[in-house]
Design a protein around this nucleic acid. Structure first.
Ligand SMILES: NC(=O)c1ccc[n+]([C@@H]2O[C@H](COP(=O)([O-])OP(=O)(O)OC[C@H]3O[C@@H](n4cnc5c(N)ncnc54)[C@H](O)[C@@H]3O)[C@@H](O)[C@H]2O)c1
Ligand SMILES: NC(=O)c1ccc[n+]([C@@H]2O[C@H](COP(=O)([O-])OP(=O)(O)OC[C@H]3O[C@@H](n4cnc5c(N)ncnc54)[C@H](O)[C@@H]3O)[C@@H](O)[C@H]2O)c1
Lengths: 212, 212
DNA sequence: CTCCTTTTGTGACAATTATAACATATGCAA
DNA sequence: TTGCATATGTTATAATTGTCACAAAAGGAG
C-alpha cells in the first residue's frame, strides 16, 4: 500500500460507505456491488471503485463485495479499529449534546471526560461521563490516554483551550468554535462551522432566486 | 457578473472571510490587504483575491480593501442580507443546542420555531423559541415564511421529516442525522455528519502513526 | 472444459481548482 | 506633473480530482 496522497473527499466518502455498509450488515445483506453502494449513498459506481482502489483490492470481479468484509477493511483504513478515547472541553449546550451523542460510540469513539470551568457544572455527570475542572485536563488526558479533543467553548477561549489540549498530549482536535485557531503541525485540526453550512445553503438559494 | 460555476470551497472561504472581517470591523480596523486576510484566516493572498474576483472588484489597487465595505459585499453575495427564518425539527439534545445558538442570529438567521412529537416537550420554549407539535409544521412554515429547515431527529425519521419540510415549503435543509436522504432538485440539501469529521482525524492519525 | 455474463480494477482522458506571475491602477512624494 | 511603491485583478500554468471506457478476472451454464 503506497502512501499516495489521498483526496480528503475520498476519506469522507469512505466514511459514508462504511456507515451504509454497517446498515446493510445489520439487515443481513451479504453481498453488494459498487453500483448498489453508489445508489445507496448517492454517487457513481466508478467513484466508489476508485476510492477503494487507493487502498487495495477488496472485491471479487463478476461478483462484487462482501458487505461485512469490505466494511472491516474501511474501518481499518479509517483507523477506527483502535477504539479512540475523546475528551470534550465545554459542558455547555453543544458540549452536553456531543457528550451524550450515541453516534460517536457506534463508530468506535468513547467520550471519557468533559471539562469546564463553571463550578456549578463540575462534579456532575452527563450520561455517566464526569465533568472535571479544566485544571484536571492534563492529568485525565494522560491517565486515560485520550488522543482526541473536542472544543466546545466560546470562540474567545478556543485558542487557549487548544493550547491546553496540545500541551496535555492530545493529537487531534475537532473545533466547533467559529474562530481560526492554530496548533503545531503534528496535531491534526478540523473546524466544524455550522453557520458556514447554512451560508452555503443561502448562497445557493440566492443564486437560484427561486426561493419565494 | 456572469454565473460561472463557483467552487464550493470558494463559498466556504468567503463565509470565513466575512466572519473575520466582522471581527476586524468591531475592532475598528478600516483597511486590509489580501495578504492580511490570508494571514488571519490561514490561506494565501492569491486565493483570497481569486475568490473575490468571481464576483467583482471590491478593492483599490495599491491600497487594499475597506473592511466594512468588503464585508457588506460578501454578506450580499452569500445572500445574508435577507434575514432568513429557520425552523428546527427535533427538540432533543442537538436541536436544543442549535436553537439556543447565538452564532446563527449573528449571521442573519432567525430560528422561529422548533418542532417535536414528544408531548412533554410541546408547549415549552427554548430561549424564547416555542416548541410546536410536528403536526403544525406546515402551518407555521407558511405563516412565518421560513425557508430553511434543520433536521435534528433520529436518522430513522430523517427522510420523513425531510419530506414534511419540503411539503411545507422549505427551500433548503441542513441535515444532522447520519443518513442519506433525498429531496427534490429544487430544494438545497446539506448534510453535516459529525462522526465523519472525527473519522477524517483518525484517518490522518492512523496514516502518520505518530500518535502514541 | 469452454463460453458467456457480470463486475471489478485501472489507465487514459477531461474537468475542476489552486498557484504563481505579471500587468495595471492608485496614492503619495518630490 | 512625474516617478515610485504598493497591492489589486487577471491571465497563464500547474496540480488535483473525477469520469469514462475497457481489459482482466471470476463464476455459472451447457
Ligand atoms: N450551541 C450550538 O448549537 C453551537 C453550534 C455551533 C457552534 N457552537 C460553538 O460551540 C461553542 C460552545 O457553544 P455553546 O452553545 O455550547 O455555549 P455555552 O455557553 O452553552 O457553553 C460554553 C461552556 O464552556 C464553558 N467554558 C467557557 N470558558 C471555558 C474555559 N476556558 N475552559 C473550560 N470551559 C469553559 C462554559 O462554562 C460553558 O459551560 C461556541 O464556540 C459556539 O460558537 C455552538
Ligand atoms: N447529540 C448530538 O450531539 C448529535 C451530533 C450529531 C448528530 N446528531 C444527530 O442529530 C439527531 C438528533 O440527535 P439528538 O442527540 O438530539 O437526539 P435526541 O434523542 O436527544 O432528540 C431527538 C428528538 O427528536 C424528536 N423526534 C423524534 N422523532 C420525531 C419526529 N418524527 N418528528 C418530530 N420530532 C421527532 C424526539 O422527541 C426528540 O426530542 C440524530 O439523528 C443524531 O444522530 C446528534
Amino acid at each position: 500500500m503506497k502512501t499516495l496522497k489521498i483526496p480528503e473527499a475520498t476519506i469522507i466518502r469512505l466514511s459514508v460507505y462504511s456507515r451504509y455498509l454497517t446498515q446493510l450488515d445489520k439487515k443481513g445483506i451479504v453481498n453488494i456491488s459498487s453500483g448498489e453502494i453508489a445508489e445507496g449513498v448517492g454517487g457513481s459506481p466508478a467513484q466508489v471503485r476508485k476510492d477503494l482502489a487507493y487502498f487495495g483490492e477488496f472485491g471479487t470481479r463478476g461478483v462484487g463485495y462482501n458487505v461485512r468484509d469490505l466494511n472491516q477493511h474501511i474501518i481499518r483504513i479509517l483507523g477506527l479499529n483502535k477504539g479512540w478515547k475523546v475528551v470534550i472541553v465545554g459542558a455547555g449546550n453543544l458540549g452536553s449534546a456531543l457528550t451524550q451523542y450515541k453516534g460517536f460510540r457506534e463508530r468506535g469513539f468513547e467520550v471519557v471526560a468533559v471539562f469546564d470551568n463553571d463550578v456549578n457544572k463540575i462534579g456532575l455527570t452527563l450520561n455517566g461521563v464526569p465533568i472535571f475542572p479544566i485544571t484536571k485536563l492534563r492529568e485525565v488526558v494522560k491517565e486515560q490516554e485520550a488522543r482526541i479533543g473536542i472544543i466546545a467553548v466560546p470562540s474567545k477561549y478556543a485558542q487557549d483551550v487548544a493550547d491546553h489540549l496540545v500541551e496535555s498530549g492530545v493529537k487531534a482536535i475537532l473545533n466547533f468554535a467559529p474562530s481560526v485557531i492554530s496548533v503545531p503541525e503534528n496535531v491534526e485540526l478540523r473546524n466544524v462551522d455550522l453557520a458556514v453550512n447554512l451560508e452555503i445553503l443561502t448562497f445557493n438559494l440566492a443564486l437560484k432566486k427561486n426561493y419565494d
